[in-house]
């Protein structure tokens, strides 16, 4: 009487064991990247002069010269 239920329970769980962790990881990896201000990025780069400066960060400086 109880064996069919037990089999169903095992199958459901085998399915969930693969599905849920995959879904969870995909959900976390698929998150939007956090927005960061250019000021914070600039400060980060100024503390590391070897890092390449992006075109976007250079643009305001060029504008100021004009």
């Amino acid at each position: 009487m109880i064996q069919p239920l037990r089999r169903m329970h095992r199958r459901i769980f085998l399915f969930l064991v693969f599905l849920l962790p995959l879904f969870f990881v995909a959900g976390i990896l698929g998150r939007h990247h956090a927005l960061r201000s250019n000021v914070a990025r600039k400060n980060e780069l100024s503390s590391n002069p070897a890092a390449p400066i992006s075109r976007a960060l250079q643009a305001p400086a060029a504008g100021a010269e004009r």
Partner: peptide, 8 residues
Amino acid sequence: ALLVAHVT
């Protein structure tokens, strides 16, 4: 499963 998806 629905709630794991809801929270994630």
